[in-house]
Write a protein that binds this DNA or RNA. Structure first.
Lengths: 158, 158
DNA sequence: TATTGTTATACTCTATAACTATA
DNA sequence: TATAGTTATAGAGTATAACAATA
């Protein structure tokens, strides 16, 4: 049971770095690219002691005023988890809970001015961090890549 | 202090869904796309009670035999965090610790057969989940998108 | 009765600090 | 003395279950 799988040792020792495999398909490339982008966002968030979920929470609130249940569904979290995340963000002065006007049970979540300022800085740092990658493409290719990605993920919500 | 920012209420109530903003740049599109991909991977991992870090750990071990310190550096985690993550994976029979032959202090981490099987299934499910998105593009466009992404992230490690 | 949200509890994930063993 | 890894501890993030308030 659970016998250790011994892969051929050729190229297995030494550096962990691997040359990009140009034979890999679009899905693998998307996954690899996404991990790189997430690492960048995670590092920028960590510099402000923000988890990925917290960064995403702030990003969602930039131009929306969802209630708790909507946030939970959007982030793919349980409502209890959402309560905790919003509570910690509120404790830090980044968001505020506002009673919903139409439904006495519901709570809307909004950015505070401090939260909006922090989000603005995070976005600026994200653009700066990813700029060197974007610079690997010509301007016309950047636009093409953007259009292709937007068509790929049309109908998806991030 | 921390006064609540009251954005204009136009279109603020109701659904949280937003139409894609075709004016957004490549960086914003990349971030949005990455969150979608991460959500897919996270959901598939969660179905097997695997965190994103655990999924990524298994993925790295597919064709590599890194030591603990290399894994930590690769995943962007502290070595202590790495010890815990590997310990939990080992407890579940997914990976094994093997003493490094050249350095008595070092420990190599390898996939077990069970771990390799699980990783294989995760990758199949990932491909299936992302297939509908890929199908939004023609075959030639898929190849173009893949090439552009590979050039974007050349030199990056995921 | 169903829905919205919070509280209680437990486990994973992560980091900082202190430690052991080897180089 | 420096490096590789583990253990101890604490807090964030997550889920399941039980609860209170409103619809």
């Amino acid at each position: 049971m659970n016998q250790v799988k011994m892969a051929p040792m050729t190229r297995m020792h030494g550096s962990i770095r691997q040359p990009p495999d140009s034979r890999e398909g679009l899905v693998d490339t998307l996954v690899t690219a996404s991990f790189v982008v997430m690492a960048v966002i995670s590092r920028i968030g960590a510099a402000h002691e923000l988890s990925l979920s917290m960064v995403r929470l702030l990003g969602i609130l930039r131009d929306r005023r969802p209630r708790m249940a909507e946030l939970a569904e959007y982030l793919g979290l349980e409502k209890q988890t959402m309560s905790g995340l919003v509570a910690r963000a509120e404790k830090r002065g980044l968001v505020a809970r506002v009673p919903n006007e139409d439904d006495g049970r519901a709570v809307d979540v909004v950015l505070t001015d401090d939260g909006a300022r922090l989000l603005h800085e995070l976005r600026a740092r994200g653009r700066a961090a990813l700029a060197p990658l974007v610079a690997n493409l010509e301007a016309s290719e950047q636009q093409l890549a953007r259009d292709l990605l937007q068509r790929l993920f049309r109908g998806s919500r991030g």
